[in-house]
Design a binder for these strands. Structure first.
Lengths: 172, 172
DNA sequence: GGCTCCATGTGATTTTATAACGTTACTGTC
DNA sequence: GACAGTAACGTTATAAAATCACATGGAGCC
C-alpha cells in the first residue's frame, strides 16, 4: 500500500505524488508528528531542523541537499553545505525523512512515526516519488540473508519506472 | 539464493564475498560470458571495457569510479574521469556489472548473462558485497505499484548489515 | 579513398558530501 | 543566577563523485 494518498477532503488538491491529497493538512500533520516524537524521545527539533522538515513537506518531492540549502538560506539560516546536511541527517536518522539513494535526494517520510522499512517508486520522467511499505526480509532477499548468515539492519528499496500521470501523458 | 559461492574446487580460495570460491575461474568465466554476450549482440567489448570488467572481477568487491580510473590509468588507458565512467556505463547497461547506489560503487555481476533483478547485501563493517536475486515485483512493492498504476522498469534493492565474517569477529 | 558512426582522450566544470574548528546555546547541578 | 558539560550551529576549506564539451581516431560501409 502506498501512502501518498491522504484521507480527508482534498481542500488544496495537489497532483504531486501519484494521487491528489490535502496538502495543507499533510504538512501540519507531519510537523505535529515530528514534534510529538521529539518530545517523547527527548530529541531537539531545533529551528533549522523544523524548517528543513517543513520545506520537505511543503515541496512534497525529493529535494537535493543543495536545494534544501538554498531554501534554508532564504529562511535566514546558514548558507554552507553542512547546515543542510546536518539538518537532513537528523531528519533521516529519526525517521522523519528518507534519502533516495538513486537520486541523491531527500524526501519527507509519508508514514511519520510508523516503524517501517520504506520502499519508493521513482518516476524517471517527472522525478516524482511515492513511498510504499516493503518487507524485504520476508522475500527472496531475507532468505538469502538467512542462508548466508548476513544480518540485515536496513534496506534500500527503490523502483524506477513511470508514474500513472506520465503514463497517461505518453498515451495521449 | 546468493551467488557469491561458486562451484568447483577452490584452487585459489578467497574470503572476499561471503564464501570462499575459486576466484581464478570466476574471473575467466565472467570475461568469457561477456565476450559471448557481446558477440551475440553485436556489442563492442573494446580494450578499456574489457579491462574494466577484468578489474571488477579481479577485485571482487565494489569499486568506486575513481579507483577504477586509477587502475585503468595504470593499465595504460586515459586518466580522466569519463574514461572510467564510460566503461562502467557500458558494463552496467549491458548487465556485466551493477552500481551499488548506497556506496556509489560498482561491482561485477555475479550472474553474467542471466536475466535478473539483483539484490545486494552490503556489510557496513568491511564493505563486502554479495549479490542475491530478488523478485521485488512479487512482494509488497509490486502490489503497491499495481495498485497505483506505476510501471516498474528497474529496481534497486540493497540491504545494509553485517556479513557472517564480521559477525564472527565481533563475537570473538 | 571518403564517409559515417561510435569510441576514446582530455580539459574544464558541476554536483554532492565531509573535515575541521571556533562559537553559541541549551541542560543539569549547585 | 553561576557554572560546567554537551549538543548544535556557522563558516572556511577541501574532498569525492559525476558530467559537459570538444577534438581525435579507428572500424565498417560504399
Amino acid at each position: 500500500m502506498t501512502s501518498i494518498a491522504h484521507a480527508g477532503k482534498p481542500a488544496s488538491s495537489d497532483p504531486i505524488g501519484f494521487e491528489q491529497h490535502d496538502h495543507g493538512s499533510c504538512i501540519s500533520a507531519g510537523l505535529a508528528a515530528a514534534e510529538a516524537h521529539c518530545q517523547a524521545e527527548g530529541l531537539r527539533l531545533t529551528p533549522v531542523r523544523r524548517k528543513a522538515l517543513e520545506i520537505l513537506l511543503q515541496e512534497h518531492r525529493a529535494l537535493g541537499a543543495y536545494e534544501m540549502l538554498d531554501s534554508l538560506r532564504d529562511a535566514g539560516f546558514g548558507s554552507q553545505p553542512p547546515v543542510a546536511y546536518r539538518a537532513l541527517e537528523f531528519l533521516v536518522t529519526n525517521g522523519f525523512a528518507h534519502k533516495i539513494e538513486r537520486l541523491n535526494a531527500f524526501i519527507a517520510c509519508a508514514h511519520p512515526g510508523a516503524n517501517h522499512s520504506p520502499a519508493f517508486m521513482i518516476c524517471r520522467i517527472c522525478d516524482s516519488v511515492a513511498e510504499a511499505q516493503s518487507a524485504p526480509a520476508r522475500g527472496a532477499l531475507g532468505e538469502a540473508a538467512r542462508a548466508t548468515g548476513f544480518t540485515i539492519e536496513r534496506t534500500v528499496v527503490e523502483a524506477e519506472g513511470i508514474c500513472p500521470a506520465c503514463t497517461e501523458k505518453a498515451d495521449a
